[in-house]
Structure formats: structure tokens, C-alpha cells
């Protein structure tokens, strides 16, 4: 009996968690792939005989759907503008905070980290108020420097930027901590040696610090890129994708088609495309990283 228990206990221990992961992560991918070839919608949900295989129609329709193409364009915009900003800001702030260890630096670390743990809806509601063209604080402050009023969420182009600012504000915290951890791992001896050789602080930054942060930068780049490709809650709560579909992301497009228009098959096809985009982008990143390492060897 004892040996029986010992042999089986690891399986007993991992089964509950593995079962839930299987049901809610792995099985859904297969279902998603299958239903992306069907026309399942709200009637198909109640009566399975109403579901038909329609081959690649969903995919063909997606690439002829201006709303989908626009959401891809918007997502590319978010990635191209958002990723460099997140990396630059979180690395810059980490470098500044790393200068000292007094209470003021620790306070700033807390302040910059705080936005990333707060509720996205609450944050979006607060920023929505800040961005209000009439009563908002931002336009009121801009008045003092004789600027504005800025149509933060009303202009199709500025609305995208406004959402990026909000997401940047939220994203800095976690990435800053990753950079800080990496900065503390750089051996002090490198800097001492560079100082003896007469390197100035700019050279020390560009020749030692930034190259030594290579792995952290890579990690932050990959996770941020994936994060921006899945950009969802901010446009959902702030703008619902508007004005004129200009802030709609791929993820939000999938949500709208799935849960507002109940076109489950169509939305599943969109989600498979998003999945492929994420995998391809991540693989390119890893390949680039490897090439860079080879060159340095």
C-alpha cells in the first residue's frame, strides 16, 4: 500500500493543476483551430446541427475586412511606437534609480512600480477623466503654457498616442524592476577598471552598462512586444476602439466579433492569426538574439 502511494503521489499532486491547464489552455487551442473553419454563431451554440464547415472562408473574409486590416495596422503602430518607448523609459528610470540607495530612491522605485499593480479599469476611468477635453486636468494644465485644447481621445491619431501614454505609464514599473535586478548584477570591477583606463561616464554607460543589460533588454523586448500585440483592456475601456475604429487592436477586434456580434467562428479565425503573428515575431526575436551572440563570439 505504501509503495503504491509513493509511486502515485506525484501524479496525484500534479493532476489537479494540470487538468485545469489542459482544459483552459491546451484544449481551447484545438477547439479554436477547429471552429475557425466553421460558421458557428449564437444559433449554432444552441443547436449543433446549424454549424457548417466553411473551409477557409473566415480567413479569406478577414483579409477583406477593412476593420480587421485597420486593427492590424493599429497594432503595428502600437508596437512600433510603444515598444521602444517602454524600453527607453524603463531602462532610463532604472539607471537613475540605481544611482543611490537612500530613501528617496526607494520611494521613487515604489512610485514607478505602483501603476502596474493597480486595476486597469480604475486606471482607465481615471485617465479618461484626465483626458476629458472640457473638464480634464491635462487640458487645464496645458492652458498655462498656452497650448491646447488637445482632443485627447477624439482625434483618431491623438487617441492612439493617448492610449500609448496610459499603457506606458502602467508598463514602466515591472520592466524597471527587471532592469534594476540586472544592473545590480554587473560586477563593480568593470567600472573600476574602466575608470583607471580613463573612460568617462558616457563611455562607461555605452560600453559597459548597456551591453551588460543585453539579456534583460532582450527579455523586456520580447515580453513587451507580445504585450503590445495583445493590447486589449485599455482600448476596450477607454475608447471601445473608436473614434472611427482608430484605436481598435487585433485583440479587441476578436473580442468584439466574438462577444458583441457572437460570430465565434470568425473571431476564432482572427485569434489564430494573432497567435501565428505572436509566434513568428517571437521566433524572429530569438533568431536575432542568437545571431547577435554569434557575432560577438
Amino acid at each position: 500500500m505504501k509503495t503504491f502511494l509513493n509511486k502515485n503521489s506525484p501524479y496525484l499532486f500534479i493532476t489537479p493543476a494540470l487538468f485545469l491547464l489542459l482544459i483552459f489552455s491546451i484544449v481551447p487551442i484545438i477547439i479554436s483551430l477547429i471552429i475557425s473553419f466553421t460558421d458557428i454563431n449564437i444559433t449554432g451554440l444552441a443547436d449543433w446541427s446549424k454549424i457548417h464547415f466553411i473551409g477557409l472562408s473566415n480567413y479569406v473574409n478577414l483579409f477583406n475586412d477593412p476593420a480587421f486590416l485597420q486593427s492590424i495596422g493599429n497594432s503595428i503602430f502600437y508596437v512600433v511606437i510603444g515598444v521602444p518607448f517602454v524600453i527607453a523609459c524603463s531602462m532610463g528610470i532604472a539607471l537613475l534609480i540605481n544611482f543611490g540607495d537612500s530613501w528617496i530612491f526607494r520611494l521613487f522605485r515604489l512610485i514607478f512600480y505602483a501603476p502596474s499593480i493597480t486595476n486597469v479599469v480604475a486606471v482607465a476611468v481615471v485617465w479618461n477623466y484626465l483626458y476629458n477635453p472640457q473638464f480634464g486636468l491635462l487640458n487645464y494644465m496645458l492652458q498655462f503654457v498656452h497650448l491646447g485644447p488637445v482632443p485627447w481621445l477624439q482625434d483618431p491619431f491623438i487617441a492612439k498616442i493617448s492610449l500609448i501614454i496610459l499603457a506606458l505609464w502602467r508598463a514602466i514599473g515591472v520592466n524597471m524592476l527587471i532592469f534594476l535586478a540586472a544592473l545590480q548584477g554587473i560586477p563593480k570591477a568593470y567600472y573600476e577598471a574602466a575608470q583607471i583606463d580613463g573612460a568617462n561616464s558616457w563611455q562607461r554607460l555605452t560600453k559597459i552598462t548597456i551591453p551588460m543589460l543585453r539579456f534583460a533588454t532582450f527579455f523586456v523586448t520580447v515580453t513587451t512586444l507580445i504585450g503590445w500585440l495583445q493590447f486589449f483592456e485599455e482600448p476596450l475601456v477607454m475608447t471601445s476602439g473608436g473614434p472611427l475604429n482608430s484605436t481598435n487592436s487585433i485583440a479587441l477586434f476578436i473580442y468584439q466579433n466574438g462577444f458583441q456580434f457572437s460570430k465565434f467562428g470568425y473571431a476564432a479565425a482572427g485569434s489564430m492569426i494573432l497567435f501565428v503573428i505572436i509566434i513568428v515575431v517571437t521566433l524572429i526575436q530569438f533568431r536575432g538574439q542568437r545571431k547577435q551572440q554569434d557575432n560577438q563570439m
Binding site: I26, F232, S271
Partner: peptide
């Protein structure tokens, strides 16, 4: 590997399940 799966892919099938 399940960490790689984006939430939007599982959203619809999980709802159906």
C-alpha cells in the same frame, strides 16, 4: 508552453466550453 498562449486565443473556446 502554455505561457506562450495568448489570452485572446483561449477566450472564445473557453466561453464555449
Amino acid at each position: 508552453a502554455t505561457m506562450m498562449i495568448p489570452g485572446q486565443v483561449t477566450m472564445i473556446p473557453v466561453y464555449l466550453l
